[in-house]
Amino acid sequence: MADVLGLYNYWVVIFLMMTGFYIVISRRNLIKKVIGLSIFQTSVFLLYITIGKVRGGTAPIVADGFEVYSNPLPSVLILTAIVVGVATASVALALVVRIREAYETIEEDEIFEQDR
């Protein structure tokens, strides 16, 4: 029982990850795909932060009266990842705008149709 509770967070993260993955492979709208990618990305952030939590710990800000701190390193990694993530997402969205200008559509199948 304790085993299942200790893994529960990972399973929620995997569920979110697979939801994002599903959007990317099943939807043909390019903006929808970018949204799916960012759901996937956020789930990875949550995975790292879950790994960093230490039982009975507190936020890693050194202060008197606290002995146990959660791991600060996943936080540092993910802070960088969030900012890089929004940078890559903005490039993807700019590409979508360009595709719309060139093809008059952002539906994948219609774009393939025109390229045929």
């Binding site: 956020t42 952030f45 932060i49 507190t58 936020a59 959660s70 936080s75």
Partner: peptide, 10 residues
């Protein structure tokens, strides 16, 4: 999960 810095960045 004790990550306030990440929380407010997100």
């Amino acid at each position: 999960l004790d990550a306030p810095d990440v929380a407010f960045t997100e």
